[in-house]
């Protein structure tokens, strides 16, 4: 990797002045499970690395207070998975506990999961000049795209967002707390993401000199919630597709339904159609299936990933049934 200067500030305030107004020369380091790869592959070649591992306090804590649970961006994935404060959110803890393997979960952080760069194999190959590296084309479009997006809305770069925590957090109505030179701002979590198309854009909307410090989940009367993902392997694996479903049970029906898809679009994707198919209805095999169909409608697969459309239907259906407390029929 290219040599760099290393800084380890003790507070967020001390970190901010170390950051630049532009992307490229400075990178933030949390668990390192993404940045180290990128540096070793020369996909990222920062002159300066600013580690967030020295920041303590709320940054590394899960705090339940009043109507919300706040998770610091520096909290490890393993701790999210096992957290008692998050016990009401199995969509989140279950998803966190399935990420990769123990080594990744012990080092990777919430902030890292949300802000990580994509895993597209063209992006990660330094010899391929794709759109996100200043090049002129997206190589996945007419190349090898079996792991790429099936919902692109015509966007020129067809990556999928790789965060497995984002869909459940969005389904749970989470907000993100971002600190920058102008102070702190709070955004609904789904607004943290964007579909990048060039070198000056990332998969999130943070400015280069901002730091994500926490994610807050409303905790008053937590909804029924579940996340379901399909993976080819059980070990060290990225999901092929994921769905997170949350709803408030009202007598026998589901209300305030939220369905969020993961690993199918450049951002985590809120599926209004799937939510509508369940809103005000009892969650049954039939309605869950219909929600899956609705979620998949409008998918525009690429040459190699048509199979993901069937998977979208399956994950939405199964996540809905799990959220409703049904017995998983697929586990025999």
């Amino acid at each position: 990797m290219k040599n760099f200067t290393y800084h380890r500030p003790a507070t967020v305030a001390a970190a901010l002045p170390l950051l630049d107004a532009e992307w490229g020369k400075t990178e933030l380091l949390a668990g390192g499970t993404d940045l180290l790869d990128r540096q070793k592959e020369y996909v990222s070649q920062p002159d300066k690395v600013v580690s967030l591992t020295g920041i303590g306090g709320a940054f590394k804590q899960i705090a339940a207070a009043g109507d919300a649970v706040t998770i610091g961006a520096g909290v490890k994935l393993a701790d999210i998975a096992e957290s008692k404060e998050l016990a009401a959110f199995p969509a989140l803890t279950g998803a966190a506990g399935e990420i990769a393997g123990p080594q990744i979960r012990n080092m990777g952080t919430l902030g890292g999961s949300l802000c990580q760069r994509n895993r597209c194999w063209y992006f990660r190959d330094e010899h391929v000049p794709c759109l996100l590296k200043g090049g002129k084309k997206c190589f996945a479009l007419d190349g090898e795209n079996e792991y790429h997006a099936v919902f692109t809305q015509g966007h020129p770069c067809v990556i999928v967002h790789p965060s497995t925590l984002a869909p459940p957090l969005i389904a749970l109505g989470a907000t993100a707390e971002v600190v920058g030179p102008k102070g702190t701002r709070t955004v609904p979590l789904e607004k943290l993401f964007q579909a990048p198309a060039k070198e000056t854009q990332r998969e999130h909307t943070l400015a280069p000199n901002e730091v994500l410090v926490a994610v807050k989940i409303p905790a008053k009367e937590p909804p029924r919630n579940a996340s379901y993902e399909v993976k080819q392997r059980e070990t060290s694996e990225w999901p092929l597709v994921q769905a997170a479903v949350a709803f408030r049970p009202f007598v026998k029906v589901a209300r305030d339904v939220r369905v969020v898809l993961g690993h199918v679009a450049p951002t985590p994707l809120v599926s209004e159609a799937a939510a509508k198919a369940l809103e005000g209805k009892e969650v049954t095999d039939a309605t869950a299936t219909a929600a899956g169909e609705a979620a998949a409608a409008g998918a525009k697969p690429l040459s190699g990933n048509g199979y993901k459309v069937a998977l979208v239907k399956t994950v939405v259906k199964r996540a809905a049934l799990l959220a409703a407390g049904a017995r998983p029929y697929w586990e025999g």
């Binding site: 063209y122 392997r233 059980e234 070990t235």
Partner: peptide, 21 residues
């Protein structure tokens, strides 16, 4: 990749091997 002529998965991430589970 037929256009670049390069292997897209020369790694242990997308060249997949099963683990214990």
């Amino acid at each position: 990749d037929k256009h670049t002529g390069r292997q897209v998965n020369p790694d242990m991430e997308f060249y997949k091997l099963g683990g214990l589970r």
